[in-house]
């Protein structure tokens, strides 16, 4: 399985190993980690939650989009859920391509798409409270019922 939601810490090397190809000249790896400070506010820990079965499908969709856009690209993505402490690894994306420019571009595309279409949510816990991150007032309308490219958060 190249697309996974994991309740356990992510083994980074195992994600990379999934995209090793004889034709590849580059593998880029993105490692998303839990940041302590956001807009000056100190996070103690995060809880990630997913609609797991749909999240795996949407990760696979992103992989497919990449493989259509960057021929011969190979993608693997694992996103962790549950409680994560500061510096923990939340997501690992590995992309291999024949040439390095494509590997960088495609990897960037993957993380931006995750932030648009994959049903995963994080709750920030601070010393004085907690809140789900995102536009909770749901003031962004999606006329097509789903986010378009360009509806980027963060």
């Amino acid at each position: 399985m190249r697309y996974e939601i994991s309740k356990e810490p992510i083994n980074i090397q195992s994600v990379i190993d999934k995209v090793v190809e004889r034709e590849a000249g580059a593998i880029t790896t993105f490692i998303g980690t839990v940041r302590e400070l956001t807009d000056g506010k100190k996070t103690l820990y995060l809880i990630y939650e997913a609609y797991e079965t749909m999240a795996v499908k949407k990760l696979a969709q992103i992989g497919k989009e990449i493989e259509e856009r960057w021929p011969k690209a190979k993608v693997a993505i694992t996103h962790r859920i549950g409680r994560l402490d500061i510096t923990d690894v939340a997501v690992v994306i590995a992309v291999s391509t024949p040439h390095r420019a494509d590997a960088y571009e495609a990897n960037r595309y993957a993380i931006e798409r995750i932030k648009e279409i994959v049903p995963i949510w994080k709750k920030e816990h601070w010393e004085d409270g907690e809140a789900w991150v995102g536009n909770q007032l749901e003031t962004v309308a999606y006329p097509s019922g789903k986010p378009e490219e360009g509806d980027l958060h963060e």
Binding site: H79, I114, I120, G134, N135, K146
Partner: peptide, 26 residues
């Protein structure tokens, strides 16, 4: 059934409907 749909989509028997707040993974 795990695919995004527009608001005018008609619901069939057995469909699983999930409301997806703004996502914040990554």
């Amino acid at each position: 059934n795990e695919e995004f749909v527009p608001d005018d989509e008609i619901i069939h028997d057995g469909d699983v409907i999930a409301f997806i707040p703004s996502v914040s993974g990554g």
